[in-house]
Every structure is written in C-alpha cells, then in structure tokens.
Amino acid sequence: MRNIWTIAKRELHLLFIGPIAYITMIVFLLTLGIFFYIELSYAIQTQQYIPTMGTSFQLIAFPLLFLAIPAITMRSIAEEKRTGTLEFLLTAPVRDWELITGKWLGGFLFFLITLAVTLVYPLVLSLIIKPGIDLGAILAGYIGLILLASAMTAIGIAMSSLFNNQIASLFATLGVIIVFWIISSPAQYMEGIGGDILRNLSLTTHLYDTFLAGILDLKDMLYYISFTVFALFIGKTAVEIRRWG
C-alpha cells in the first residue's frame, strides 16, 4: 500500500514540475469562465432565469475531461517502458498492481485538484444568488464528475500500459472513451436485452440522467467503480504479460 502512495506522489509531482498541470487548469478555468459569463449575462438579460452549474458540468464532462484525460495519462506507463525505467520499477519490490494503482491514483488526484479549482464558480454563484443555490445538485454533479474522471483515468492507464508510444496510447485511450461515450446511441434502435446492455455500459447514461440531474444513485456509483477496477485489472495484466512474455 505504501508503494502505491510513493508512486502516486511521484506521478503527481511530475505533472506539476512541467507545464502540463498548469496548462490543463488554465484551459479548464478559461473555458468554464467564458460559459459562466454567458450564463450570468443571459440570466441578467432575461431576468427570468436562474443561472445554474448545469452547463459547466456538461462542459467539464465533454470536452474538458474527455480530452484532458487521454493527454495526461498517455505518458504514464508508456514513457517508463520506452526509457527503460520500467525495469527500474519492476526490479524494486513493487507489485504489478501497486504500480498500476499508484499510476492511476496520481492521475486521479490530479483531476481531483483540477475539479477542486473549478469550485470557484459554484462559490461565486452561491454569493450572488439569493436565497442561495441548490447545494445538492452541485454535490451530485461533482460526485458524478469525480467518478467519471476515475473511470476515464483508469482507461488511460490501461492503454498506456499496452504501448511504448505515447501517441499510440493517447489515441487508444481516446478511442476507448469515445466508444463507451456513444455506445448507448445505437441502443435507441434496439429492443430487448441488447439495448439495455449497451445503455448500461455507456459512460454517459450513468452521468447525464442521474448525477448531472442532481440524483445520486448507488447503481451508477458502482458502475464507475467497477469500470475503474476492471480497467486497472487490464493494465495490471498488460504489465504482467510483458514481464512473463
């Protein structure tokens, strides 16, 4: 367990010593800021509309996390493989799953920090709206985004462990995320159990209909958690296969 934290710390540190972390956060804040301004202006103009975080949450889910996660995780294991530092890690007393989990935790913590930074907008909102905002909706939205980030980061780590090449890892991650993003669309034209399965596999169904609508459902939480665990298991197996291959 200690090794997971050691590796996660190193991973997080690596993002902050370069420009990557800061650029990502600036992009997040800037994009959200622009739309937040539009939201407020619209509310002021019409005088019949109460501004919410709804648009912001949707923006964070797509395109912000959607694009940022593959970019942040692509390096993670692929780079260690390319430079040979994986040999250094795997000859230290570190279990394969500790390595993968540590790598994931580092990326996940980074997105937690990034999401925490965006809390500035609901804070502003709560200050200017009387008698206050719907805290429950905000909480549900953030929990949903955190779970989404967890699952997508796990996909990124799994893909990164399959390749030596960062760009290959980037596009593989993007590809897997896209597939799970749109997988529920064909379900509209399917009847019976097939359509249900596709709908339940989708990263979006579990987010938009519940968390972003202010609903907390244990089923959706379990979905993202199992998604994360399964993706990390693939990553662990990929490292293991290379070792035994």
Partner: peptide
C-alpha cells in the same frame, strides 16, 4: 541494469529517495 534507467527530471537526491521509499 546495463543502461542505467534514471528519471532525467528528478534530482539525484529525489531519485534515490524515491527508490528508498519503494524499499
């Protein structure tokens, strides 16, 4: 190892501390 795998972005101390923590 033959080609010493090191992290170029770490200081010597950080690198050894990292390894020590893993142990």
């Amino acid at each position: 190892p033959e080609t010493v795998p090191l992290y170029p972005d770490m200081t010597v101390f950080e690198f050894l501390k990292y390894k020590a923590d893993l142990h």
